[in-house]
Design a protein around this nucleic acid. Structure first.
Lengths: 246, 246
DNA sequence: CGCAAAGATATGTCAGACGTTTAATTGTCT
DNA sequence: AGACAATTAAACGTCTGACATATCTTTGCG
């Protein structure tokens, strides 16, 4: 973890990579304290600001945490699922918005992945997960709900569905797919009839999960996917019509 | 994008957050040039090193890129899928290694997600994807192959399978699940018979993908998942036996 | 023995400076 | 006038040195 080519540019990136590799390889175990900034500066033959830039890069990825004070320093951070969720959601959201990903593509991915969870969720769901799903389905019936609040509740419902699979790795991977869809979903206006249909499907999914019928949950998720695509196509069609009119 | 509480700690983190939020909200579009470091330092009322630390945080997430020279500066970066792949794989790998995720849990997640791709892949695979899958299955038959090379080829095979779905969002989400398994897979020693069985399943999957039979691909993936779990359990059992012996 | 004060250590921030890269401008020669 | 070379300017990349602040440890006093 010491090599540093004579190339005097991107020093902080090189140092960050060296430390990151050491963490990934396991040479630096969790909670291990890195040398102090001054010591690192010495080891790498650079100045302290350069070392600090490298450490900030690692901190941005939650790979290290820093503590001030006498026994402070930079410590290898145990990457927690909750921390990773946030990064995953940010990255996924930006990927969708910056790459002209169509609603259809994002939606397809989301429901394909969710359907992968359905059998496991039906098998393992706890009373807690089921209660959350029921509560969100109920919340969605409130008449005064804004479209945005409706979407947020939709996300919460699906998050509970995914979490019910009891597999943190799945929950992590799905977080991006589910949450990143929200900005796209927010562009849709849900009529009362639209909502009714969605809630019916949500309820059917919750029913299937409750009785452990994975196939039925999967089937209703597929219906929900199709219906969501139709709603989005309507929005796009209307927008195109409006553009032609003006 | 200017607010900055009087709290004189974590300034670089606060500044990074402010800029990141501006990018996410769309206030800073792709390829937009940020003010120079000196100007940012002025705007936020901090020193240039502090601004630089903030920019490095953003660079670590591929949110900005920097250019030197007269027309240089920091530019909002179009987050590309390839860039996101790397981050996703790094994060997933560390999540697994740092959180005592069992082989069973990771394996379950991986195959559940892959099976979600199977129907789409069977429907849309190009000749290219199929050729890659065939080539990797063939490579796996080479007798002198190390276990590590065998695993690498396995990953390449499954990557091609996922990419065949033609959905970049799916490919992105799956990248983490598939690649992060490699370190865990590398702990397994594959006997000639093990490999033969795996190659048979790979071939069956490729066959199913070739003729567009998603259900059959799914079935063989399920078998492969089961078999992989069995192999891992053997390894664990042997390791426990060895521990008791000493 | 307990508690407060002093010290040590390490991060967080600042100020100023110099080097390097790159593009634009200027100037000169053909 | 046009092309090419030299100068200039802007911006990032890095360094040095310093001060501020947080926190643990040690010391000293009652």
């Amino acid at each position: 973890m010491k090599i540093d080519p004579a190339n005097p540019a991107d020093l902080s990136a090189q140092i960050a990579k060296a430390i990151r590799d050491a963490i990934i390889s396991g040479a630096l175990p969790v909670d291990e304290r890195l040398p102090s900034e001054a010591e690192l500066a010495d080891q790498f033959n650079v100045s302290r600001p350069t070392v600090r830039e490298a450490l900030k890069r690692l901190a941005a990825q939650s790979l290290i945490r820093t503590q001030r004070g006498a026994t402070g320093g930079a410590f290898v951070n145990r990457l927690r699922f909750e921390d990773a969720y946030g990064q995953q959601i940010t990255t996924s959201t930006l990927l969708l918005s910056m790459n002209d990903v169509s609603f259809a593509t994002a939606c397809e991915a989301r429901y394909a992945l969710e359907r992968a969870c359905a059998p496991l969720s039906a098998q393992r769901r706890t009373a807690d997960h089921l209660a959350t799903m029921r509560a969100e389905a109920h919340r969605q019936q409130q008449p005064g709900l804004t479209d945005e609040a409706f979407c947020a509740s939709d996300v919460a419902f699906h998050r509970a569905l995914v979490d019910a699979a009891g597999n943190p790795v799945l929950s992590y991977q799905l977080a991006g797919a589910v949450e990143a869809m929200q900005p796209l979903m927010n562009m849709i206006t849900f009529s009362a009839r639209d909502r009714e249909r969605i809630i019916t499907l949500h309820t059917a999914i919750a029913d299937a999960i409750e009785v452990g019928d994975g196939a039925k949950a999967d089937e209703n998720l597929a219906n929900l996917a199709t219906y969501t695509q139709e709603l989005a196509q309507d929005v796009i069609a209307k927008r195109n019509a409006a553009r032609h009119a003006k």
